Amino acid sequence: MKESKTIAALFDFDGVVMDTETQYSIFWGEQGRKYHPELPGFDRLIKGQTLVQIYDKYFAGMEEAQTQIRKDLDLFEMNMTYDYIPGVLNFIDDLKKHDVKLAVVTSSNTKKMENVYRSHPELPQLFDSIVTANQFKESKPNPECFILGAEILGATPGDSYVFEDSFHGLKAGNAAGSTVIGLATTNPREAIEGKAHYIIDDFKGFTFEKLVEVKA
């Protein structure tokens, strides 16, 4: 008897599970104006990257700035609101009914996620695994995180669906060889057109049946 394949759903966190990107845009917009006024739209440049990657690329050798940003970011994240993207809870429940394995794959670190758990203690039980930046070396657009997420769930990247909103994340999902569902929560549809196999505004009305109709 042929063993059935494990289907995995790999969710980015910010802008995919939780509606937080507008808040981060405010924070990183302020950092850009303060430290890199020569880079307009700084908040868009860093989306989908880990803090370490942001430091290495934009704040190398700026130890005092790194320390201050980390301090300010910790305080900012403690006071953020974490609201679910519309329809995501119903969609997750539907996937579970069809034995789909679920993981969050995020560039956020463990400390940030602990802030989320205080607001939503139920979150870890919604997923089979939560993969954070502490568990992989290369950040998006490198596909390492999604390849790792699929492996943890016992699936292959080719049998996985990646849900992303950022340009870096969409590139990573495609590079992993997964079917990529783009969410127009951070960038408009026309901006991510051609970067995902299917685009949705949110998860309202999206189901397992509709998902499996999407082909990479």
Rank of each mutant, 00 (worst) to 15 (best):
E213P: 09
S139A: 06
L183C: 09
G32M: 06
M18T: 06
E21Q: 02
Y35L: 07
F27P: 12
I152M: 05
L73F: 14
N115T: 01
D72A: 13
N134C: 07
Q66C: 13
D12F: 10
R33M: 11
E77C: 09
N79G: 02
D43F: 09
F136R: 04
K112D: 01
A60N: 03
R44G: 00
P121E: 12
V100I: 14
S107V: 01
P86F: 04
R70H: 13
P188A: 15
Q66S: 01
T179F: 01
E77Q: 14
K111E: 11
E21V: 07
A175H: 02
R118P: 11
G61E: 15
L51K: 10
V52M: 10
A175R: 11
L102S: 08
A216Y: 02
G41M: 04
K5N: 02
L89N: 02
K2F: 07
V17H: 00
F206I: 00
V105H: 05
K97W: 01
I147F: 05
I147W: 13
V88H: 15
T20A: 08
Y198D: 11
A155Y: 12
V17E: 05
S107C: 03
N79H: 03
M1H: 12
V105S: 01
P141H: 01
R118T: 14
F206L: 07
I92D: 12
I54Q: 03
K97N: 03
Q53T: 02
S160D: 02
I54F: 07
A65T: 13
D94I: 15
G41L: 15
V104L: 09
T22H: 09
Y35N: 14
L153P: 02
D72T: 09
K204Y: 15
Q66A: 05
A172R: 01
S119Q: 13
L211N: 06
G41F: 14
D74Q: 12
M113I: 09
K137Y: 15
E114P: 03
G169K: 00
R70A: 10
V88I: 06
H168I: 08
L102W: 03
Y84G: 03
A176F: 05
T186H: 03
H36D: 08
A184L: 14
L95F: 06
G158E: 02
S178V: 01
L153D: 00
I92L: 04
V17Q: 03
V100E: 09
V214S: 14
K5C: 13
K215V: 10
K57D: 04
E144R: 03
K215Q: 09
V16E: 01
K96M: 15
Q66T: 10
E30D: 07
L183T: 05
A176D: 08
H120V: 13
K140P: 07
Y198I: 04
E144C: 03
V52Y: 05
Q135L: 00
A133Q: 06
F27T: 05
A133P: 11
Y55P: 00
D201W: 09
Y198M: 04
K57F: 11
L170D: 05
K57R: 05
I69N: 15
A176I: 06
K2L: 11
I7D: 08
L211H: 03
F59S: 09
